[in-house]
């Protein structure tokens, strides 16, 4: 892949991330001004607000990072090398990426939906997702040391 193509990939990612930031901000604005009080007092709703806030912050950081990368050819090449590094890919595969991340997101989603009916199910699903992600990160750190 040449760098021009990679630039297009990054620009496409920036468009998707910008849309997601707008969705997160929209959710936060709704939750602040228009959400009913009964909803505002629930733990599930507070969790969703926290998730939307942190998601928006992370995506905004990535957007800023990609803006800087796109303006510097050396940084662009280094980032491309980093993303396509075979050792990094091997470490991620051994640690269970991307399956663990996908399953964790599905657990969080299921937890948020189930939370409106049963708070215990919500807590259990979120705890399971967190445990799964911590295990994945621990494995990644282990393989980063040994590979």
């Amino acid at each position: 892949m040449n760098m021009d193509h990679y630039k297009k990939v990054l620009k496409r990612r920036m468009v998707v991330f910008s849309a997601l930031v707008l969705v997160c901000v929209g959710l936060l604005v709704y939750s602040q001004f228009w959400a009913p009080d009964t909803l505002k007092n629930s733990a599930v709703f507070a969790f969703q607000r926290g998730l939307a806030s942190s998601g928006a912050l992370i995506l905004a950081f990535l957007l800023f990072k990609y803006c800087r990368i796109l303006s510097d050819e050396t940084k662009l090449r280094k980032n491309y090398n980093q993303e396509n590094d075979e050792r990094t890919k091997a470490i991620r595969a051994k640690a269970g990426y991307p399956m663990v991340v996908i399953l964790s997101l599905l657990l969080v989603l299921a937890g948020m939906i189930a939370g409106y009916f049963n708070t215990t199910v919500f807590a259990v699903l979120i705890a399971a997702a967190l445990f799964q992600m911590f295990a994945c990160v621990a494995l990644k750190l282990y393989y980063m040391k040994t590979m």
């Binding site: 090398n81 980093q82 396509n84 590094d85 075979e86 050792r87 990094t88 091997a90 040994t146 590979m147």
Partner: peptide, 21 residues
Amino acid sequence: AYAVGTTRQTITSIEVGKYTA
């Protein structure tokens, strides 16, 4: 690493024999 399209960490791992390219 920059020239061959990989990272410094990968070159280190190959050099010390922790990783096979």
